[in-house]
Amino acid sequence: MKEYKICIIGFGAVGKGVAKAISLKKDNIKEKYNANLKIVAAADSSSSAISSDGLDEELLLKTKEETGKLESYPNFGGNLNGMEILNEVDYDILIDVTPTNIETGEPALSLTLKAFEDGKDVITSNKGHLAIKFKELIATARENNVQFKYESTVGGAMPIINFVQETLNSCEVESIIGILNGTTNYILSRMTTEGSSYINTLNESQELGIAETDPTQDVEGIDAACKTVILANSILGVDAVYSDVDVTGISQITSEAISLAKKDGYLIKLIGEVSKEELKVSPRLVKQGSQYDLNGTLNMATVKTDLAGDVTVVGKGAGSLETASAILTDLINVIKMK
């Protein structure tokens, strides 16, 4: 049986979801793929836990929940940072779930390049480095003969990148159009059903933990724009970066505008459009009852192909375990390629 030593850098909501998913599924993966998963290191922004014999996933989660820091993990807690861990720990696969930084791509960019240069496979949920350095990252992975997976960067649990590359690989994709951000979909859905103002709905979504304390990346369309760049590069082969996207967010949408649209049988949704001619994120009118008529944090994407016609996928675009499900899928795909 092959053993896979896993290093998780980033232990917020998604990182914890990855630990939980591994805890839930490791026995099934062992039986189905003859692979033994072992988390040998985990790190949050200020602390870490490291053990070559493997860390207990449930104890990691309990430690983080009760103390807020991984350094309190019994016997194996410490304060090494991400790069220090990569230099000192013997691991096979890096799972990078650090926060997205669209300006520099850090720390994910440096961590990923370091892992590649050391011959390690990488799975990420981080969009920042992909949105500004996609071509460089893919080229470096190939040069070092390692695998680089990033399904969870677009749509959370919604299958899109692997789905198109593997299931629709007989088709040429002409465009992808969809709702690529769960937070904005929740806000616009609530404004539509409740008639509430943007600011009140935003405050509500923050109280529920759907929107971040600083919601800028979501509500100004930055998150969705990153996803359009990743789709453009990975599926359409367009050499695009974040600055190539025409971006407008939802912060100027009023309840009056939503009410007027509703009277005419329309909804307002933040839509991302990906084609060889255009990369755009903006609020648009969509017909009630269409495939875009989704509530809550759901994401969707319609893939326009030459052979299969239009294929629409829908899934939860946010959530700890939901996003971790896509990361675990990538992990299984890495294992299958060994």
Results as ranks from 00 to 15, higher is better:
residue 2 K to F: 12
residue 4 Y to M: 15
residue 5 K to Y: 02
residue 9 I to M: 15
residue 13 A to W: 02
residue 15 G to R: 02
residue 17 G to K: 04
residue 21 A to S: 05
residue 22 I to Q: 07
residue 23 S to G: 12
residue 23 S to Y: 07
residue 27 D to Y: 04
residue 27 D to I: 08
residue 30 K to W: 06
residue 30 K to S: 10
residue 31 E to R: 11
residue 31 E to A: 12
residue 33 Y to P: 08
residue 33 Y to G: 04
residue 35 A to C: 11
residue 40 V to I: 14
residue 41 A to I: 04
residue 41 A to G: 02
residue 46 S to R: 14
residue 48 S to H: 13
residue 49 A to R: 04
residue 50 I to E: 08
residue 53 D to E: 15
residue 56 D to L: 15
residue 57 E to Y: 03
residue 57 E to V: 13
residue 58 E to P: 07
residue 59 L to S: 15
residue 60 L to Y: 06
residue 73 Y to G: 01
residue 74 P to F: 14
residue 74 P to C: 12
residue 76 F to G: 09
residue 79 N to T: 15
residue 80 L to R: 10
residue 84 E to I: 03
residue 84 E to L: 14
residue 86 L to Q: 11
residue 87 N to L: 00
residue 89 V to F: 04
residue 93 I to Q: 03
residue 100 T to Q: 06
residue 101 N to E: 09
residue 104 T to W: 08
residue 108 A to S: 15
residue 119 G to H: 09
residue 120 K to N: 05
residue 122 V to L: 03
residue 122 V to N: 03
residue 126 N to M: 04
residue 131 A to H: 00
residue 133 K to V: 01
residue 133 K to Q: 15
residue 139 A to Y: 15
residue 140 T to M: 12
residue 142 R to Y: 10
residue 144 N to P: 14
residue 145 N to R: 09
residue 146 V to P: 15
residue 150 Y to H: 04
residue 150 Y to G: 09
residue 151 E to G: 00
residue 151 E to F: 02
residue 152 S to H: 01
residue 152 S to D: 06
residue 153 T to M: 03
residue 153 T to H: 05
residue 154 V to E: 03
residue 158 M to T: 05
residue 160 I to L: 01
residue 160 I to C: 10
residue 164 V to C: 06
residue 166 E to F: 01
residue 167 T to G: 11
residue 167 T to I: 12
residue 168 L to D: 08
residue 170 S to E: 14
residue 172 E to A: 14
residue 172 E to L: 08
residue 173 V to D: 09
residue 175 S to Q: 11
residue 176 I to V: 05
residue 179 I to S: 00
residue 183 T to H: 03
residue 183 T to P: 05
residue 184 T to H: 10
residue 189 S to E: 04
residue 189 S to G: 10
residue 190 R to Q: 14
residue 194 E to I: 01
residue 196 S to F: 11
residue 196 S to E: 11
residue 196 S to G: 02
residue 197 S to P: 07
residue 206 Q to D: 01
residue 207 E to R: 14
residue 211 A to V: 04
residue 213 T to Q: 14
residue 216 T to W: 04
residue 222 I to N: 02
residue 227 K to T: 08
residue 227 K to D: 00
residue 229 V to G: 06
residue 232 A to L: 13
residue 232 A to D: 05
residue 236 L to A: 11
residue 242 Y to C: 02
residue 250 I to T: 00
residue 251 S to T: 13
residue 254 T to G: 05
residue 254 T to Q: 07
residue 255 S to P: 07
residue 257 A to W: 10
residue 258 I to W: 02
residue 259 S to K: 09
residue 265 G to Q: 03
residue 265 G to C: 09
residue 269 K to T: 03
residue 269 K to F: 12
residue 270 L to W: 12
residue 271 I to K: 12
residue 275 S to Y: 02
residue 277 E to W: 08
residue 277 E to S: 12
residue 279 L to Y: 07
residue 283 P to T: 06
residue 286 V to E: 06
residue 286 V to Y: 01
residue 288 Q to R: 13
residue 290 S to C: 07
residue 295 N to R: 13
residue 296 G to R: 11
residue 304 K to V: 08
residue 305 T to C: 07
residue 310 D to V: 05
residue 312 T to R: 03
residue 314 V to A: 03
residue 315 G to R: 00
residue 315 G to Y: 00
residue 324 A to D: 04
residue 325 S to H: 09
residue 325 S to T: 06
residue 326 A to Q: 04
residue 327 I to C: 13
residue 327 I to A: 06
residue 328 L to T: 05
